[in-house]
Design a protein around this nucleic acid. Sequence first.
DNA 1: ACCCAGGTGGCCC
DNA 2: GGGCCACATGGG
Length: 227
Amino acid sequence: MLPRLDEVHDLLYGFYGPQHWWPGDTGFEIIVGALLTQQTSWSAVEKAIGNLKRARLLAPIRLAEAKPSVVQRCIRCTGFYRQKARAVQEMARYIARNYEGSVEKFLRGGMDEKRAELLGRRGVGCETADSILLYAKGAPTFVVDSYTHRLFDRLGYPMGRGYEGTRRFFEANLPREVQLYKEFHALIDVHCKTRCLRKPLCDGCPLTEICPYCEAFVKGEANLIKH
DNA sequence: ACCCAGGTGGCCC
DNA sequence: GGGCCACATGGG
């Protein structure tokens, strides 16, 4: 019998502790970070954010009016830098044009409408939209990433297909709490990165009790398995 | 040398 | 509505 999703959260939280994702940042910094972190390590994003700050470009109107080549230089370390420069600048121009450069105004309003509006911006897909809604707006949307799919697929949870199917599954089986959503998403990421990626660490894994890979390992039925 | 990183957009069928 | 591919740098 699989545990409830909030029990999985508690297992991870008890082991890894609070993750403090995106603490004390401005809304715009979170939005830019969400765009830059796509398929990229967070340490590279931190450098790029630092570069943008030093160049005084981490504000909608400033970024909107900056030369593309300057923006590209700031964020080069995050990869896909031409695409991403275009995405962050178009986002900045959109906020400058329609919301007087105010991220607070931009984020005001109903979650579903904002989700649709975000998805209309270049470089904003499902995960990025939900990240912005959850971490910048504080709206109760569960953020799904490739780790979420992989981990819970392998644990055997009957998730729906695709991004929306997985998101609906989590939201239907979890209390609708922003703090829980924030922490759970971060914990899933940290867990997969530290224990399931290239380093098969079934031994001492906080999910040993419910993980079929760990179970096989503990029983001696399998060697260390990458999972 | 190889794999991976907090995905997205465009195209194809 | 899913399956591919380009996008690009940096760290282990």
